[in-house]
Design a binder for these strands. Structure first.
Lengths: 206, 206
DNA sequence: GCTTGAAAATGAACAATGTTCAAGAAGAAT
DNA sequence: ATTCTTCTTGAACATTGTTCATTTTCAAGC
């Protein structure tokens, strides 16, 4: 017997619209920033009522969180595409790819990291977990480079190093912080990783 | 002759209230987060009308920005208090002090770094400049440690290193990112600085 | 002290925006 | 065809930022 539930026409329509709402919301966040996202704008652009948005996502945070969820998924997919041939090159690649992705989708990343929930409701665990998992992608190459180190310590190191790169990039890409020209930034990140690896006793381009 | 303008009773009252509004706003941000800050709450707590808040600060962003301005001033004051005896110790001290300050005033720091203006109005330049200046506080000790390096490069390095520390701390203190226990964090930051200095060819505790 | 003019304070009204829900429409099940 | 369930709608409501005509305050001049 077939456990796969057939998708009724009703569900098809529902899903189509769900995707459409997300696409529109993502577009607005990406181009005009999270603060410019308005329920009515989304509903009108999607050709439905505001009620339908609520019906589909519970509340407006639900829309934002779904966009954020997809952002971290896309980020993870990109980071997983970094070649794992050479561990040093992989670390450089992860940093450079994060920079690329952040530069391409700055407002989406800011939505992911800066959005706060109403009241004191907790941020969804699955998203946090996905961010943590993304930041743990430096773990495997670090294990290869430091075979004698404690695994727990490498896990901490991975998050720390990725957080550091995140700080450099997220502040560096604030167009408002005029200081770091985006051209320099890539070079700056590269040198940062370089120096830190040297501090760990790892030779460049093994 | 005396250029100092006497402060009339009227101005005294105005100033007192201005300070009171700021204190209340800061308290709300610090304890319940920026998203919980409401004009009416502030006005009621300050015993005045909403109009007076607008009269004093132009718009609500004006209140937030003034609080943020004072936050970065307080941060800078704290960072300037780090002893400059030994340059390596000073770098550790700057990182550790930033961590302390961030831990004590997490919501205020988040307000400083995460607040976005309405529409596309630019963030006030003086605040950005003050943040930049704070992040440049690693410059003097780095100059002492790397006397042969190009000054522009040291300036970049200072911002990069401080941004990295900022990333580690701001993500590490997200209680939602369960991963890094706050106890570990100080140690983690310390080791990070340690490793990076080693990578720069600087010996610990010269 | 009274008058007067400027500055400030007020808070009701307005505007923008998130949220709810009773009524109706659409589709599935029998 | 009828009924039953589910989804959709959008007007009404709630919250919150913003404005502004009116009133109040108060310092200066007489």
């Amino acid at each position: 017997m077939n456990n796969v539930q057939e998708e009724s026409p009703r569900d098809q329509k529902k899903n189509r619209r769900r995707l459409q709402i997300l696409e529109i919301a993502r577009g607005i966040i990406a181009t005009k920033g999270l603060r410019s996202l308005k329920v009515r704008d989304v509903a009108e652009a999607a050709g439905c009522s505001v009620g339908s948005v609520y019906n589909e996502f519970g509340d407006f945070d639900g829309v934002i969180l779904t966009v954020n969820r997809e952002t971290v998924q896309a980020l993870t997919a990109r980071l997983r595409g970094v070649p794992a041939d050479d561990p040093v090159r992989q670390l450089y690649g992860l940093a450079a790819t994060y920079l690329e992705f952040f530069a391409e989708h700055a407002n989406l990343l800011r939505s992911l990291f800066e959005h706060r929930m109403e009241d004191d409701r907790p941020y969804p665990d699955d998203i946090l977990q996905m961010v943590m998992d993304a930041f743990a992608l430096m773990h495997p190459p670090l294990v290869r480079l430091l075979p004698d180190a404690d695994d727990v310590k490498i896990a901490l190191l991975s998050r720390t190093l990725f957080s550091a790169v995140h700080g450099i990039i997220s502040l560096g890409l604030e167009e408002r912080m005029v200081a770091v020209p985006p051209q320099m930034l890539r070079q700056q990140v590269e040198q940062f990783v370089d120096t830190h690896l040297a501090g760990l006793g790892i030779l460049p381009l093994s």
